[in-house]
Amino acid sequence: MTKIAMNVNGKAVSREVPDNTLLVEYIREHLRLTGTHVGCDTSQCGACVVHVDGKAMKSCTMLAAAAEGATVTTVEGLAASKDELHPMQIAFKDNHGLQCGFCTPGMIMSATDMVERYQAEGKELTEEAIRHELEGNICRCTGYHNIVKSIQDGASKMTNA
């Protein structure tokens, strides 16, 4: 057991957990933030994506101990309030970018990460680029059509926000 402290969604947290605790287990089981999901065990589906120190990472493929001292944002930490959703969350709703909702948190965390990276580098986030960037996020419901549209819309909403 090791005491692991980090900042999650703007709050300092600390829990005594076994060394083999995954970051996703720390988030879901110990902090009880259950928006971050687990959809596979080979690091491919991306339902578990969170931001660690501002970068999208797969929380199922990272030990909680390795995030000691890090700043972590989960899907619960994205919106300013329940009535003020993040522009990407609004875009997913406006474009019907979700159906069962299970992959959605990971999709949104990957989407905001890609938009921020492309904007920082001054690159255009084309449809092709979005599809390529989504390599690590699997959705079984939407056929991706509306997820791609959501991210296009979310990117422009984030620019104008």
Binding site: R28, L33, T34, T36, V75, K82, K93, L98
Partner: peptide
């Protein structure tokens, strides 16, 4: 009509079986 159920999923507040203790 935009979906009524979306908000809870977008906020990470969906309640799936494994979320329940």
């Amino acid at each position: 009509v935009l979906r009524k159920e979306d908000k809870r999923f977008l906020l990470g507040k969906g309640r799936y079986t494994d979320d329940i203790v």
